[in-house]
């Protein structure tokens, strides 16, 4: 297939070439600014945004990509969907935040190949140990910003230090990396953790 960049593809959409047949009214996608995005070897591009429409029966969803432009996505049985665990389109809800990789088609549509819903990956320090979880103070990168505790609860499928049989034995002050799904109430359900020495 002809490989096009994300900028070229979104430009095509903005010019009106192709949209999924849908009852949803779509606005032209916003043009990208800044440096050109690079396509990976499999031809997919990266998109992120909130779900503003989802239709499992038709295998489609719509996100408002960064800046609010709606982007239509086809979802097939081969699309890998993760929301705390590998799941299917019925698990996705309006308002879920997605990172995804998608294959642009020449007809102006995207086909999602991989979708991650409400996923976060944080590094920080254990500030309190609680039953079934802990409080996490987040570290920054270059800067030490204001500390903001996040409530973390263990997902049933939690894997610690890449060993599924390890139960986290945490102590206050310990450095941890936590990956999981953030829920509507702001609680982070941890699916993977790395606990430093």
């Amino acid at each position: 297939m002809t490989r096009i960049t994300r900028r070229q593809f979104l430009r095509n959409i903005a010019l009106g070439s192709g949209a999924l047949a849908s009852q949803i009214v779509f606005e032209p996608a916003r043009m990208l600014t800044g440096s050109e995005d690079q396509s990976v070897g499999d031809g997919t591009i990266f998109l992120e945004g909130d779900i503003i429409a989802v239709d499992p029966d038709r295998g489609m969803l719509v996100i408002n990509e960064r800046g609010g432009a709606p982007v239509n996505l086809r979802v097939s049985s081969s699309t890998r969907i993760w929301k705390g665990e590998v799941t299917d389109l019925t698990a996705l809800e309006l308002g879920d935040f997605l990172y995804l990789r998608a294959l642009p088609g020449l007809d102006g549509t995207f086909t999602a190949t991989k979708i991650w819903a409400n996923i976060v990956n944080l590094m920080g320090t254990v500030s309190a140990v609680e039953n079934g979880g802990f409080q996490l103070r987040i570290d920054g990168h270059a800067h030490e910003g204001p500390e903001r505790p996040i409530t973390v609860r263990f997902h049933p499928s939690l894997v610690v230090n890449d060993n599924p049989t390890v139960t986290p034995a945490l102590r206050v002050g310990q450095s941890v990396q936590v990956l999981g799904v953030i829920e509507r109430d702001g609680v982070l359900k941890a699916t993977r953790m790395w606990v430093a020495e």
């Binding site: 992120e48 945004g49 976060v120 990168h141 204001p146 903001r148």
Partner: peptide, 26 residues
């Protein structure tokens, strides 16, 4: 970005130490 701007959405955080870091770029 940094901890003070933490968000579950990368697009809502900062642009890093160099001022132009973007989650959707390499």
């Amino acid at each position: 970005g940094h901890a003070g701007s933490w968000s579950s959405r990368c697009a809502d955080t900062g642009h890093g130490s160099c001022g132009n870091c973007e989650s959707y770029l390499d």
